[in-house]
Design a protein around this nucleic acid. Structure first.
Lengths: 102, 102
DNA sequence: AAAATATATCGTAATATTGCAATGAAACAA
DNA sequence: TTGTTTCATTGCAATATTACGATATATTTT
C-alpha cells in the first residue's frame, strides 16, 4: 500500500512525534554523560516511562545503550542518526521554490 | 513540562508519522494539480480517511485548500513548510561529528 | 427544482500509545 | 549473604489514532 521509503519516513517521524522522546534526544546531544537515570529526573517522567521511550529509540537504532556496572549509558548512534537524516532531509527538501498552486 | 520548541517539533513530526500523510504530501509535491479526490484513488484510502488526514495537515498549516467549484484544490503552503523545515533541521542537525560516548 | 458530483463531518469499532505502580533482574556494597 | 541501586519488564487504565460507512453540505448540471 505504501512504498518502503514512505513507511521508513513515517517510522522515524513517529518516534520524534512525542515531546518526551524529543527531550531525551536533545539531552543525549547536550550531555557528555548520558546515564538513563538522569533522564528521568531531568525530564520529569517516571523511570519506566523513560525506559519505554528509550526502548523505542533503540529499536529504530537511533541510540544505543552500554551497561556500565549498575547504570546504563545511553547515547546517540551517530552512524544511524546520519542515515536517518539523509532520509528525512530528502523528504523535507523536496520542495522547489514556486508559487502555491492554489 | 516540555519546552515550546520540543512540543512544536513533536507536533510536526507526529503529522509525518503516518505513511498516508507522507504519501499525500509527496503527491502534492509531485503533481501540479492537487485535487483532493485524486488523492483517494492514488493512495487507496477511502475518501473520508483522506479528508481526515488532509484536515490534520491543514491544521498545522502545512497545506491549504481552495474551493474550485465542486472540487477542492489542495497544495503545500510553501511559507509554512519552510518554517517547519527550519525547526526540524535545527533538531536533526544538532549532532556534531564525534565518537559515540559509549 | 431535482439529480449529480465532490468534499466534509459524524459516529463508531478496532487498534495503538502513553504513563505508571508493581515487580523482576543484574551488578555492586557491606 | 543481604541489602542497595539501577534499569527493564509486566499489567493495566486512560487516552489517542485510524479507517470507514452513513450522512450532511455545497456547487454545478440538467
Amino acid at each position: 500500500m505504501y512504498s518502503n521509503q514512505q513507511k521508513e519516513i513515517a517510522l522515524f517521524a513517529k518516534v520524534f512525534g512525542h515531546p518526551a522522546r524529543v527531550a531525551i534526544l536533545q539531552q543525549l546531544f547536550k550531555m557528555d554523560t548520558c546515564y538513563c537515570g538522569d533522564l528521568s529526573e531531568e525530564i520529569g517522567l517516571a523511570q519506566p516511562t523513560i525506559s519505554q521511550h528509550l526502548k523505542e529509540l533503540k529499536n529504530l537504532g537511533l541510540i544505543k545503550g552500554t551497561v556500565e556496572g549498575v547504570k546504563v549509558c545511553y547515547c546517540i548512534d551517530n552512524e544511524n542518526w546520519s542515515k536517518m537524516k539523509v532520509l528525512l532531509h530528502k523528504f523535507l527538501d523536496q520542495d522547489i521554490p514556486k508559487a502555491d498552486c492554489c
